[in-house]
């Protein structure tokens, strides 16, 4: 049986903390869906790191452009969840 995967904001913030830490003065548990990654203290390498983790955890492939295109957690989640990722 195949199920469509949905990555939630809570999943993403957990993976951000795990792969790139949390900037002092930033509360990832707050309303960060539309806050830019730059304002959250994450640079492109941090994004590369978390995207790598998402790919490994969910077994999906995310295009390299995502690092440049997804400027906010909301945009990244939309991209990930639209990738049609499935699990068996």
């Amino acid at each position: 049986m195949t199920t469509q995967i949905t990555v939630t904001l809570a999943d993403l913030t957990r993976m951000l903390r795990e792969s790139a830490g949390e900037e002092e003065g930033v509360d990832l548990d707050g309303d960060v869906l539309n806050t830019t990654f730059i304002d959250l203290g994450y640079d492109s390498l941090a994004l590369l790191q978390v995207i790598g983790l998402i790919q490994r955890e969910y077994g999906i492939t995310i295009p390299d452009d995502a690092v440049a295109d997804a400027e906010t957690p909301g945009a990244l989640l939309a991209l990930v969840n639209a990738s049609g990722a499935t699990t068996d």
């Binding site: 790139a20 830490g21 900037e23």
Partner: peptide
């Protein structure tokens, strides 16, 4: 070391 610097 801050949590942001630990992984790197």
């Amino acid at each position: 070391i801050s949590s942001r610097l630990m992984p790197q």
